[in-house]
Simulated assay, not measured.
Amino acid sequence: MPQDDYFTPEAIATFLSADWSVSTRNDRMGFFLVGPAVRHAAGHDIVSDDIVMGAIQVPGDGRPIVLMADRQPTGGYPKIATVIGPDLGRLTQARPRSLFRFVQVGLEQAVSARAAEAAGLRTQPRFEPLVRTRFTSEFLLGLNLIDGVYCS
């Protein structure tokens, strides 16, 4: 974990075992997490250092914040973890009050997840044309028809 020495072993265990959800107070700067407070070992102020996308800062109130695309370049709160790239998209689509948990992964697992994501993106989606054989009155009345010709 990035700065796990700022947290007690119990706080790290709580972070990894708790059910979390995103609050309704989210934007492109950060996603505020709802769950148990994560306590610091000895204070929450650190010398400002760089922040990567997905870093999870824990301010003084113990409520973690996942920093997103428009995050500040530096921050002065300890970071308990970083969300790996392939999981950031899932997190950004999480609805408020939907529950999830964090899992600690190593470098090999993170690289493997990134490779799997890249392989999935290389796969072309299969498209099937929509062929209508029955045109109801409701369907036809909903179209923009000019002299019986369909204009899209």
Rank of each mutant, 00 (worst) to 15 (best):
S98D: 15
F100D: 00
F100K: 04
F100R: 00
F100A: 04
R101N: 05
F102I: 04
V103N: 07
V105H: 01
L107D: 08
E108D: 13
Q109D: 15
A110D: 08
A110L: 04
V111M: 13
A113C: 03
R114Q: 13
A115V: 15
A116C: 09
A116L: 14
A119V: 06
A119K: 06
A119C: 01
G120K: 09
L121W: 08
L121I: 09
L121K: 15
R122E: 13
T123P: 03
T123C: 09
Q124K: 14
Q124P: 07
Q124E: 14
P125G: 11
R126L: 14
F127M: 02
F127P: 01
F127C: 00
F127G: 04
F127Y: 14
P129I: 06
V131D: 00
R132K: 05
F135R: 00
F135P: 03
F135G: 03
S137G: 10
S137N: 10
E138L: 06
L140W: 00
L141M: 11
L141V: 09
L143E: 05
L143W: 01
L143F: 03
N144M: 11
N144S: 13
L145Q: 10
D147L: 03
D147R: 06
G148D: 09
G148V: 04
G148R: 06
G148K: 06
